[in-house]
Computed example of a mutant assay.
Amino acid sequence: MLKLIIGNKAYSSWSLRGWLAVKQSGLPFEEITVPMFDEEWNRRREGDEFAPSGGKVPILWDDKTVIWDSLAIIEWLADKTGRDRYWPTDDAARGMARSMAAEMHSSYQNLRRDYAMNVRKQFPPTELSEDVRAEIVRIMELWAQARALHGRGGPYLFGTFGAVDIMFAPVVTRFATYSIPVPRFAAAYMAAILDHPWMREWIQAAQDEPWIIENYEVPAT
């Protein structure tokens, strides 16, 4: 059976991506949640299960094979269970989807830094910096293009739920947590993501976690 090691569900955006990727595979898996940044965090990261990843989460163990990094987990599981589970079948749509997923993987550092994920909170809106605003505009452009060109088959970016939605799901939670205004089409997409049964399961589980990271419990400034 697959084994997935993740961080706190309240705060760990990359863990959410890895977890959604495994859920999308349809394969059974053992889930191990490791609280981040508590007094045992550094000791745990030195263990054998963490070693291949450099002490980062998520980590997927498939028998003796270890895969870390959320996008790598998506690709591993797509190869294992069928790429159509994760990526559009149309060439143009698939090319765009892969590009969007890769851009999400490597970009938007200002949004990530200033607006940490916390699915247990909702803060009032604040003034956005120009750098963050520019990144949000870029995300809105990508979402609009994907929905207009390839989103006719359902409420997600490329119609049906897939790898791109997995990659952007933590961004959706950030927009909701920090009350960031978005256009109507984006609000509809966010509602579809947040109403997905796996997202509801993750967010509900986060409410029951006992761990608190104080830095993530205050509004963005």
Results as ranks from 00 to 15, higher is better:
F29W: 08
F29S: 07
F29P: 05
F29I: 08
E30W: 02
E30M: 04
E30T: 13
E30P: 01
E30N: 08
E31G: 02
E31H: 07
E31A: 05
I32N: 08
I32T: 11
V34C: 13
V34Y: 04
V34F: 03
P35C: 07
P35M: 04
M36L: 15
M36V: 08
M36A: 13
M36T: 03
M36P: 00
F37G: 01
F37H: 10
D38E: 08
D38Q: 07
E39W: 00
E39T: 11
E40W: 07
E40I: 00
E40G: 09
W41R: 06
W41I: 09
W41H: 12
W41D: 15
N42G: 14
N42R: 14
N42F: 11
R43E: 15
R43D: 14
R43V: 15
R44M: 12
R44N: 14
R44E: 14
R45W: 07
R45L: 12
R45P: 07
R45S: 13
R45H: 07
E46D: 14
E46V: 09
E46F: 02
E46A: 15
G47H: 13
D48C: 06
E49H: 05
E49T: 06
E49D: 12
E49I: 10
F50T: 04
A51M: 10
A51T: 12
A51K: 14
A51P: 05
P52V: 10
P52D: 11
P52W: 10
S53P: 08
S53C: 10
S53M: 11
G54C: 10
G54P: 01
G54A: 09
G55V: 01
G55C: 09
K56H: 13
V57F: 07
V57L: 14
P58T: 03
P58Q: 02
P58G: 06
P58L: 06
I59C: 07
I59V: 15
I59T: 11
I59G: 05
L60C: 01
L60R: 01
W61Y: 14
W61R: 09
W61F: 12
W61H: 13
W61S: 02
W61K: 09
D62S: 10
D62G: 02
D62I: 00
D62C: 03
D62W: 02
D63P: 00
D63C: 05
D63H: 11
K64C: 11
K64N: 15
K64H: 13
T65Q: 15
T65F: 15
T65D: 13
T65E: 15
V66L: 07
I67G: 03
I67R: 02
I67Y: 03
W68D: 12
D69F: 12
D69M: 11
D69A: 05
D69W: 08
S70C: 04
S70Y: 03
S70M: 03
S70T: 02
L71V: 00
L71G: 03
L71I: 04
A72H: 02
A72D: 08
A72K: 03
A72C: 09
I73M: 05
I73E: 05
I74C: 05
I74V: 15
I74M: 05
I74D: 02
E75G: 01
E75Y: 02
E75V: 07
W76S: 06
W76D: 04
W76Y: 14
L77C: 04
L77F: 08
L77P: 04
A78Q: 09
A78V: 13
A78D: 11
A78T: 12
A78P: 11
A78S: 15
A78N: 11
D79F: 04
D79T: 08
D79W: 03
